[in-house]
Amino acid sequence: MISLLRKMRKTGRVAEPAPEPAAGDTVPAAAELGGSVQIRHIDAGSCNGCEVEIASAFGPVYDAERYGARLVASPRHADALLVTGPVTRNMEVALRRTHEAVPEPRLVIALGDCARDCGVFAGAYGVAGAVKDVLPVDAEVPGCPPKPEAIVEALRGLTGR
């Protein structure tokens, strides 16, 4: 316990200072949320590269939580769905149902090139389409995988902070 304490003191704050919010990037539909966005992440068929980046976006260095975003366990608690990967046929219905399970107002973020336009998986036999073919998308994060900075910036666009 003492060693842990010492380590804490030595490490101090890991989080990088918050960059200036990018102007004009806010999502109007998110205004009602008032600076608090709970996120349910859905892997609709990703290669898991995006997941690694999400984990680091919520990790100590980028600390997306400081802007009012938080990952939750149930879509009932969520305000936004964070969808990664192309929508595979197996996940299409599940994705729709998850969206249906989120109470209004609800947002959808398509994260990564796959989610935006099927990326490297475009045209594959198991792919039903991009996220926007299945659900109305409110925000997109390009990149394969997107950088944590980009993810954080998109989230800040929703929380407005």
Partner: peptide, 14 residues
């Protein structure tokens, strides 16, 4: 601000 809505039980989308 919004009315209560009936919905499917959350079955993990399955």
């Amino acid at each position: 601000r919004r009315a209560r809505r009936p919905a499917r039980l959350w079955d993990c989308g399955a």
